[in-house]
């Protein structure tokens, strides 16, 4: 799973969001590091929808503009959890190795 896809799924974990809402939340989650352009965002959403990880939730028209909201599916939540556990395991192992390195006086 790519980082943008992981962040989009994370952005949808708490509530359905519309296009710009997802882009904003991804930026917040990544502390400003990942700024999704609209074409990129919809490319990621297409792939996640094809894998049935996200689906349209509802639409609203605000000031004459269409907002389509997307929500995380159960399959998407499972995929996100699996990826989060994998990344957390990697991070934990990296921290352990670094601690050992410091303990052995290599750093």
């Amino acid at each position: 799973m790519t980082e943008p896809a992981f962040l989009v799924l994370t952005a949808l974990a708490d509530e359905p969001r519309h296009g710009y809402g997802i882009a904003q939340e991804v930026e917040r989650l990544s502390s400003g590091r990942v700024q999704l352009k609209i074409g990129t965002l919809y490319g990621v959403l297409d792939r996640l929808a094809a894998d049935a990880f996200v689906e349209p939730d509802h639409e609203e028209v605000r000031q004459g503009r269409l907002r389509r909201y997307y929500r995380l599916t159960d399959e998407g939540a499972q995929a996100l959890e699996k990826e989060a556990v994998r990344l957390a395991g990697n991070a934990r192992r990296a921290v352990e190795r670094l601690r050992l390195r410091r303990a052995e006086g290599l750093a």
Binding site: H18, G19, Y20, A23, I38, R65, R67
Partner: peptide, 27 residues
């Protein structure tokens, strides 16, 4: 329609800048 909405909302909040006359190259 939803892509235009998302783009303009970003532009309004300064991502592209509403003063800009054209979308940025990265967009």
């Amino acid at each position: 329609e939803e892509m235009v909405t998302a783009f303009l909302e970003g532009a309004r909040r300064g991502k592209a800048g509403m003063d800009d006359q054209r979308p940025r190259w990265m967009e």
